[in-house]
């Protein structure tokens, strides 16, 4: 299973990089979201999958799944959400100010000199 998940997260990350490199702001934001998914899956896999029980203390259970990657990821999921929301706000603002959502066009727009 780990092998499959590692490959899946590689695919997710590769596809996200492709999205991030594109011209459209919306696709870039989608790319950052999927990138987060890829990284999360990778992190979780590093702690070995499906070994033992859910990491909640139980007198009858002796083996638990690794809780540490899960804790780290919980933080990461929330942060990635904050990032996505912020990027969306930036996207809306830039579109309103510059009239484009194409990053290639943005750099040529009103310069000071």
């Amino acid at each position: 299973m780990e092998l499959i998940i590692i490959i899946l997260s590689g695919i997710l990350i590769g596809a996200s990089v492709y999205l991030i490199l594109s011209k459209s702001v919306l696709r870039i934001i989608i790319g950052t979201s999927t990138l987060a998914h890829g990284v999360h899956l990778m992190l979780l896999t590093m702690g070995e999958l499906k070994r033992g029980n859910v990491p909640v203390l139980d007198a009858e259970v002796s083996s638990y799944a690794d809780p540490l990657p899960q804790a780290l990821m919980l933080t990461a999921i929330v942060i990635s959400f904050a990032l996505t929301a912020f990027l969306l706000a930036v996207a809306i603002k830039t579109y309103r100010e510059l009239g484009t959502d194409n990053v290639e066009e943005m750099k040529g727009v009103p310069h000071d000199d």
Binding site: I6, I13, G14, M42
Partner: peptide, 19 residues
């Protein structure tokens, strides 16, 4: 094509690093 090659590289490399 550039984007595709770069993202392919990143994806494959990530898989290798993960493994």
């Amino acid at each position: 094509l550039t984007n595709f090659l770069v993202s392919l590289g990143v994806g494959v490399l990530t898989i290798f690093i993960g493994l």
